[in-house]
Design a protein around this nucleic acid. Structure first.
Lengths: 347, 347
DNA sequence: CTGAAAGCGCTTACAG
DNA sequence: CTGAAAGCGCTTACAG
């Protein structure tokens, strides 16, 4: 015969009911559940038995309220659609969840208003800290001297805010770009088109400086560099490529400051029947998954995305749990990955 | 002369301090802030003045606790790295935030354990509802009869759970796949390789059935279909392509049940010097951004990602706010997009 | 090792 | 239209 299960109470069990069932105080239940300090094994067993019997799930909203923190960390992402960020997010998320924190992803679409709206979560206590992947300092986190409020657990990564004293992890953009320029020069290129990100992004400067730093005095005289602005997205790369094709003389190499833009460029060149790298070499920056699978596979600068996400999140956790107030600025090295999209300059 | 700003209080203002400053009760402040019902204009002005003067930011953790909801919605994403989901997430997120809800993204990596862990958030009140993009029913949401707990605000999308009575929005996979098969047949193809997703995914069945339904009795006799399992990701497409190349006879068309896999296939064919579509046609499914920019551009079935995300999120909001308990199952049509990766079968 | 009790900052019947 | 007051479910000094 089947035993008909008793109709369970509609309301979920609370800590009070657990404490009654176990014959202890709510303080003891709380201690068993969260800090194993000084609870007798016997008491612990009684409590755990009651927890299981009642199917108790703590009301985390109450706990968060009481403890004045949400155990939630915010990541503000400029473009959730860009695979470069996906990997950073994934590693940051893993690091956070191992430490018992949830992650909220905010897709800002590079809009300062949205960044501002999202970072309000820190002021309203809905997030304990933020990993900010943008060079804009959100208004909502500024204190009266116009600087980042020092009470806020804030880590900046990838795109850096131009202000001292902010914890950050970023790539050595200068040297990454310099390596790429050296590679291109070694292949005999001298007529370049550069597709850069939005002018507002400080990234462009470091990468442009690195690029120019590669030219020796000899090379300087003969080079020509045409610069076009994109937004790091694939479509902007395609648009820029069409502009290049419409111009008088074609460059021998197109260097894009993101893989996405490079993918857009390769697409348009293929459409126009131009061989890559036979007629024009194309290079990117980031080494996203698609760079490796592109046709032809893309020469690029690999960012250590996994390490960036993990390092930045660890710094944030240190800040949140106040283990550390050092506010380090960490710069990681990039690596030149030579694939088939670059080759000797055409005669 | 500069006025030195007074040292502000360390602690943020509370509703009590606002009520004191405004000379009203906390009840009135709360009413002004959240429900405009029956508050005199005069009182409202006094309260708002106090709010601004003190720079009051409500403690949302307290509010959430008191109201027994978090105004947070969870989206469980099988693979945050797949651009197909990015668009769905973006539209769902916009819909939610317009309604005043935050969105938490959980990257499950198709792991039922992680799905289960994340959906615990509904039990602990950290999320008011979930948009679940997976065909696994999370253990933590099951009630005693082994079915989805009807108290949970749950909407299923894309990959569907095989159980009746669950609100969902999905694509007409059968007819999408059938259209693709008809396109391929019209080009004279008869030797096919099919790269499918993981066997555990019910999607495969609908798409396989649709594919086979396109064959007339006449065509049936002459066709050959070889099936290889992938995981919808780009690398699994590349691996499958290498298997195909290693086999005795090459198919005339490779139909992949995701664009990502198709991109992996095209990459490997290019590497092997095989012309697409001259020697082998390649087709995908999803119409992600990269499908359009692929070299050659990819023939695929467009999913209305924007509409899926928006519709699913609206259903979830209806459930959460109890406007609706209908639990509709919505099926949206796909669209065949013919690009240059498919062509006439080689002789 | 354990308990009694205060209190976190809100919202919401209830009463007027 | 407004106020006094209860109470949401926890955690944490404090005391023993």
């Amino acid at each position: 015969m089947e035993v008909v299960p008793a109709m369970p109470d509609k309301k979920p069990a609370t800590i009070v009911r657990v404490s009654e069932a176990a014959g202890v105080s709510t303080a003891t239940v709380s201690r068993v559940l969260h800090k194993s300090d000084r609870v007798s094994a016997e008491t612990r067993d009684k409590v755990m038995a009651a927890v299981h019997k009642l199917g108790y799930q703590p009301d985390l909203l109450a706990r968060q309220f009481r403890m004045r923190r949400s155990f939630t960390l915010l990541i503000t992402v400029p473009d959730i659609t860009n695979p470069f960020y996906s990997e950073i997010i994934r590693s940051a998320e893993r690091t956070a969840s191992q430490a018992g924190y949830k992650v909220v992803l905010g897709d800002t679409e590079s809009d300062p208003e949205k960044e501002d709206f999202l970072t309000q979560m820190l002021r309203t206590k809905q997030a304990d800290g933020v990993l900010h992947l943008s060079s804009n300092l959100p208004k909502s986190l500024i204190d009266m001297d116009g600087k980042l409020d020092s009470d806020i657990a804030f880590v900046n990564a990838c795109e850096l805010i131009n202000q001292p004293g902010i914890a950050s992890v970023s790539l050595d953009n200068f040297n990454g770009s310099k390596q790429m320029a050296e590679h291109l020069l070694s292949l005999g290129h001298s007529e370049f088109a550069l597709i850069i990100g939005p002018r507002s992004s400080p990234l462009n400067h470091a990468r442009l400086d690195g690029f120019h730093a590669a030219f020796t005095n000899v090379a300087k005289g003969r080079r020509s560099v045409k610069t076009i602005e994109g937004d790091f997205g694939i479509e902007s790369g395609a648009i820029a490529a069409r502009k290049i094709l419409a111009s008088q003389s074609l460059p021998t190499a197109i260097y894009c400051l993101s893989d996405e833009m490079a993918l857009g460029v390769i697409h348009v060149l293929h459409e126009a029947g131009i061989d890559v790298p036979g007629q024009i070499s194309v290079a990117g920056f980031d080494n996203t998954t698609y760079a490796a699978y592109s046709v032809p596979p893309l020469t690029t600068i690999a960012q250590p995305t996994w390490k960036i996400g993990e390092t930045a999140m660890k710094m944030l956790l240190d800040l949140v749990e106040q283990r550390d107030r050092k506010r380090d600025q960490i710069v990681l090295g990039g690596e030149l990955i030579i694939r088939q999209s670059t080759g000797p300059a055409r005669a």
